[in-house]
Design a protein around this nucleic acid. Structure first.
Length: 240
DNA sequence: CCAGACGTTGTT
DNA sequence: GTCTGG
DNA sequence: CCAGACGTTGTT
DNA sequence: GTCTGG
């Protein structure tokens, strides 16, 4: 799955990499090596332009954990951090966003916790975090959805997002059973376009990471605690 | 019909 | 809002 | 995802 | 054990 990730690029770099203008509401964020649910992170979306038929890309800051528009309380987003691609088109919490509000979630890499099989009679070993990142250092575009929620108390709109998952490929399957889905640049426009498309067509745009593209290595358990942050979290440590 | 949930992963 | 379960 | 709390009353 | 918060 994807329950923690890193996004450290400046808005200028993201602007360039995703050909996206900064939304007026965009909030400049510090490099984040430990993005956890409920935190703000940059996402790329597209809205239809007034005149041209093509949508124009925008960089927004949004809260991780999709809060459906009908929610009474934003805390429901705490358990909407991932959406299964197999069912996302039908689930009440994601259906509308899948149909109308698809997003890219820029990431340098993401974390998975590997739980080794406990040996007979022994207590289960501690989980080992791994960092999974492109070998070539490129920025990942994770497949996401976003949603608007009106905070009536504060009289403000909250933008939130979720990340789509699928079954892990063999080369990363040994770390985890599930993994996020990605988009390649040539598919960005189709994915982001809010115009109606068939579920099959949309899901066809999504790919597990190209085989061999990603590197996975163990890192310090410092990432476990959301209060820790910094480049030391993605430094490889000696494998067991 | 109304009431109540609306999600994923992992572990057992 | 919309789906599922009773 | 992991870490940390998990509760109430009354007093400051 | 299970829920909430980050």
């Amino acid at each position: 799955m994807c329950g923690r990730y890193a996004t450290t690029q400046t808005s200028a770099t993201l602007h360039q990499a995703f050909e996206a203008d900064l939304a007026t509401s965009f909030v400049e964020l510090e490099a984040d090596y430990n993005v956890a649910p409920t935190k703000l992170a940059p996402v790329v979306i597209a809205r239809r332009g007034d005149e041209s038929a093509s949508a124009r890309r925008e960089l927004l800051t949004a809260r991780w954990g999709l809060v459906p528009s009908w929610a009474k309380d934003p805390s429901i987003g705490n358990r909407m951090i991932n959406a299964r691609s197999e069912t996302v088109a039908d689930k009440p919490a994601f259906k509308k966003a899948f149909a109308q509000r698809r997003a890219l979630v820029p990431a340098d890499g993401y974390y998975e916790w590997y739980a080794a099989q406990p040996r007979e009679g022994e207590k289960k070993p501690a989980k080992q975090p791994f960092y999974i990142t492109p070998k070539d250092g490129s920025v990942l575009a994770m497949a996401g959805l976003y949603e608007f929620w009106k905070d009536r108390e504060a009289d403000e709109w909250v933008v939130s997002f979720t990340i789509l998952t699928t079954t892990a490929e063999d080369d990363l399957g040994h770390v985890h059973e599930r993994m996020p889905l990605f988009l390649q640049p040539q598919a960005f426009d189709e994915w982001l376009d809010p115009a109606p498309r068939s579920t099959d067509e949309l899901l066809g745009l999504l790919v597990p990471a190209a085989p061999g593209r990603l590197d996975a290595f163990p890192v310090s358990t410092a990432v476990n605690n959301v209060r820790n942050n910094g480049p030391e979290l993605i430094v490889p440590i000696a494998a067991e």
